[in-house]
């Protein structure tokens, strides 16, 4: 087995373990055999009905939400780092997920939107707006000279959007009641139906990412080389912006504005399978999904019987990675 195949296998195994842990662990610990039985053979008469309800009604939905959101953000992070050649790009750090979440809350508060389709449309619109804003900022000469500053600009955009969000939430108690956990990145705010309804959007994003893999490999060599190889940079950048919006927007509609998932997912995948985007992007999705599930499980275990939302745990896990990256050789070039 080559080193890369080994790395890819390790990531997939880690994800499977994370899924099982997410189904089994929590305020009520359930052993793995029972979990599998409840998930696969719900009619088994030997099952404790409480276990059955906990696994099927509570843990399966949040696991699916975590899987989808984490995968979407991981792939989006890989796409973002690829098109910008900026190793610390992340849809959360650059304000894309905050834009999506602001648009969703605004839509709920102002228009009374509630169907999954409407929420997804709002999230995608918000993600598109924030992406366009951050792309415009990135094109400014001062930021283009020091790409690392883009993260600072993004965090300021995030702070502003988050304030606007809280303002809307607090002035409308009904919206607050339903969405205050979602806005800090809880996987429990969405049901299985909503998750499955939004899954096709993520699948479309994944397909776009795979189509973009070869042009992104060329872009990694520099704009001139990519142009020389016959790739059309403008089209590639526009398509990957669309892909990022699709993936990060949908993920946010599901799990709220998570930060660092794309950053950590893409770097983990790059470490294990190398820089070729054909392998990197899907595995960034696997790594992102595993990260979100691990964070969610940790959040359930750290403070029983209470829970800490996955978004908070991810931020605590991801911040040291960002610091390490900025201090590393990759960061020194920024």
């Amino acid at each position: 087995m080559s080193r890369r195949a080994l790395g890819a296998t390790a990531l997939v195994v880690a994800l499977l373990l994370a899924v099982v842990a997410s189904l089994a662990l929590g305020a009520r610990g359930i052993d793995v055999a029972t979990v599998l039985a409840a998930a696969l053979r719900p009619d088994d008469p030997g099952l404790d009905p409480v276990d059955l309800v906990v696994v099927r009604e509570l843990r399966v939905p949040r696991t699916v939400v975590g899987l989808l959101a984490g995968a979407g953000l991981g792939i989006a992070g890989g796409l973002m780092q690829g098109t910008t050649r900026n190793p610390i790009a992340d849809p959360g750090l650059l304000g894309v997920t905050a834009g999506a979440s602001f648009a969703v809350v605004l839509g709920i508060a102002a228009l009374g939107a509630s169907s999954p389709a409407a929420l997804a449309a709002l999230a995608l619109t918000g993600a598109l707006g924030a992406s366009a804003l951050i792309a415009a900022i990135a094109a400014r000469p001062r930021i283009a000279d020091a790409p690392v500053l883009l993260v600072v600009a993004g965090s300021a955009v995030t702070a502003a959007l988050t304030s606007a969000n809280s303002l809307l939430l607090l002035s409308d108690p009904e919206t607050l009641d339903r969405y205050r956990f979602w806005t800090v990145g809880a996987l429990t705010a969405r049901g299985l139906d909503e998750a499955l309804a939004l899954a096709p959007l993520l699948a479309a994003g994944l397909v776009m990412a795979l189509v973009l893999a070869r042009p992104l490999d060329a872009i990694a060599l520099g704009d001139d080389v990519a142009r020389g190889l016959g790739f059309r940079l403008g089209r590639t950048r526009a398509l990957s912006l669309l892909g990022i919006v699709l993936l990060a927007g949908t993920a946010t509609a599901l799990a709220g504005p998570l930060v660092f998932v794309g950053l950590v997912g893409a770097h983990l995948a790059r470490r294990l399978v190398g820089p070729r985007h054909g392998a990197l992007l899907p595995l960034a999705g696997v790594a992102g999904a595993a990260l979100v599930l691990v964070a969610d499980v940790l959040g359930r275990l750290v403070a029983p019987p209470g829970e800490i939302e996955a978004g908070i745990v991810v931020a605590v896990l991801g911040a040291p990675v960002l610091i390490a990256l900025v201090r590393s050789r990759t960061g020194a070039a920024l």
Partner: peptide, 25 residues
Amino acid sequence: GARFVVVGVAIAFLANGVLGYALTR
């Protein structure tokens, strides 16, 4: 330089996480 600022941004996220944890407790 920018590194100080970006490290600071990461610390801000970290502290916000701690704050979120404390608020749940």
